[in-house]
């Protein structure tokens, strides 16, 4: 069981998730401090560890639109958040999968802040509302990367295969 700690509209841009003025900070170990930096209360709660790992952000359509900045995925991964959205923008989705950020496409999701959520068996179950919603599959091209645990280990496997090790 996990709690929805933030409910967002459609078209949440990477400038909202990780404002451009912090882009000089690149390392995944350092980016979490700037997650949703302009939402000062939410950012403070993240930094003060008041939001437990596994907590859920629910968004409408086109989450992560805009820039290719990978900080937008690594900053959320650093807090071990799960993102459920009706759909995602392409580059953000790929970055999230590459880094192992937990994300779920759920086209009919209904949830509000405070709702208790379980993700299992291809469904998002909103325990608070007593409703469940189907999960849409991630692009098939990405499954092998997810299975490998991210793009870094996946590419490492490819390199070792190439050298026949």
């Amino acid at each position: 069981m996990a709690k929805v700690i933030l409910k967002l509209d459609s078209d949440i841009s990477t400038d909202i998730i990780y404002p451009g003025r912090f882009m000089a900070t690149v390392l995944p170990t350092e980016t979490p401090q700037f997650a949703f930096a302009d939402n000062t209360e939410f950012n403070r709660n993240l930094q003060d560890r008041k939001i437990p790992p596994g907590s859920v952000i629910v968004a409408d359509k086109n989450f992560g639109c805009g820039s290719s900045r990978e900080q937008a995925a690594s900053c959320l991964k650093g807090h071990e958040l799960t993102i459920i959205a009706k759909d995602f923008a392409r580059i953000f989705m790929q970055n999230a999968i590459n880094l192992g950020l937990k994300m779920v496409i759920c086209p009919a999701i209904e949830a509000d802040e405070g709702d208790e959520i379980i993700i299992e068996g291809g469904k998002v179950i909103n325990k608070t509302r007593g409703k469940s919603f189907d999960i849409a599959p991630l692009p098939k091209a990405r499954q092998a990367i997810i299975d490998a645990g991210g793009l870094i280990p996946y590419t490492r496997q490819k390199i070792l295969q190439k050298f026949g090790t």
């Binding site: 690149v26 290719s68 990978e70 580059i91 970055n95 590459n98 793009l151 490819k158 390199i159």
Partner: peptide
């Protein structure tokens, strides 16, 4: 693409 995807391209 993202930075990790690019790192993979640089390698392969």
């Amino acid at each position: 693409i993202g930075a990790t995807e690019m790192a993979s391209v640089w390698a392969l």
